[in-house]
């Protein structure tokens, strides 16, 4: 019987503890009450609670009532001797003129002794969004000038520095190129020798070496034919060094300006082939004749310069 009386009393006591434990309060506010269309509305939610209470931040999506959420600004907690104030700031805006009611925002929390989340709501906030008041009798004003962006000196300095570096690099490259170009004329001086000048110089050098007189007959014939083949390469643009005697003669036959040397070249190359490939030991007179033939081949094929016809000058009295 006694048990039957105590049980409801205990249950009543437990339920009263839980209502006494709820120290959470929530408050919503705006910085002003009157706004123009498009103005930023600073909307703040403050939740006071104990340290032990676990607060879930309010979830506000893209819109709240008739207002648009521009951005979620900041959220922070302030501690005042164990009493915590959680602040959540939002920037809202309205695009229609009206008396707008920001609806209550639900906040979830859970105390240390709670087994499930509980919720409470903020107070509704009313704001007035109005349009610009136009004075129909007022003066017509011009359109506002575009907003001038203030100069960013850091950026200007950066650009200037980059410009200086580019100019410096360009200067160095041009100086290097000019230095290289100044060397080119010297090289050109060396290669401006005509093919016959090169060949005649080489023949003269070979003569000076006196190879066959020292017994180097094969070397002499190899060198002399190489000079003439190189001469053909440059003079007639033939790959004479890569051609056999018969092939070289065949190509020379096709050149009208080589007609004068065809017979002498045939004798010259064939004789040299005999010495080079058939162990043929020629007489001294043949060796001398080879040099004469080589000179003849070069001298007879020196290109004649075309005489420039001067335009007749009219006899002006």
């Amino acid at each position: 019987m006694v048990r039957k009386i105590y049980f409801p009393i205990i249950l009543l006591l437990l339920s009263s503890f839980s209502s006494f434990g709820q120290t959470v309060t929530a408050n919503a506010s705006t910085d002003k009450k009157d706004y123009l269309v498009g103005d930023y509305i600073n909307f703040t939610i403050q939740v006071q609670h104990d340290k032990k209470e676990n607060i879930i931040p309010p979830t506000i999506q893209d819109t709240i009532g008739a207002l648009v959420v521009i951005k979620k600004d900041t959220s922070f907690d302030t501690d005042n001797n164990g009493a915590i104030t959680s602040t959540y700031k939002y920037i809202l805006s309205g695009y229609d003129s009206a008396l707008v009611l920001i609806p209550p925002v639900s906040i979830q929390y859970k105390g240390s002794s709670d087994t499930a989340f509980q919720s409470l709501s903020t107070n509704p906030v009313q704001v007035l969004v109005s349009t610009l008041k136009i004075n129909p009798g007022g003066k017509i004003k011009d359109v506002k000038a575009p907003i001038k962006i203030p100069l960013d000196w850091k950026l200007i300095l950066l650009w200037a520095l980059a410009g200086i570096i580019i100019l410096l690099a360009a200067y160095l490259l041009i100086r290097r190129y000019l230095k290289k170009r100044s060397l080119i004329p010297e090289i050109q001086k060396i290669i401006t020798l005509t093919p016959h000048e090169v060949a005649l110089n080489s023949l003269h050098d070979l003569e000076e070496k006196k190879l066959w007189q020292q017994g180097f007959i094969k070397e002499y014939h190899s060198s002399i034919t190489e000079i003439i083949r190189r001469y053909f390469e440059k003079r007639y643009q033939l790959p004479a060094l890569e051609l056999t005697t018969s092939e070289a003669l065949e190509l020379l036959k096709r050149r009208s300006d080589a007609e004068v040397i065809l017979n002498v070249t045939k004798d010259f190359l064939n004789n040299a082939d005999m010495v080079k490939f058939a162990k043929f030991i020629p007489l001294n007179s043949v060796n001398e004749e080879m040099l004469k033939q080589a000179y003849e081949i070069v001298n007879k094929t020196v290109p004649t310069e075309k005489k420039e016809e001067k335009p007749e000058v009219a006899n002006v009295p």
């Binding site: 005697t245 018969s246 082939d273 490939f277 058939a278």
Partner: peptide, 11 residues
Amino acid sequence: RRGYVIPEDVR
């Protein structure tokens, strides 16, 4: 009809 080889023969 030669007793020696010349480059023409090789080519």
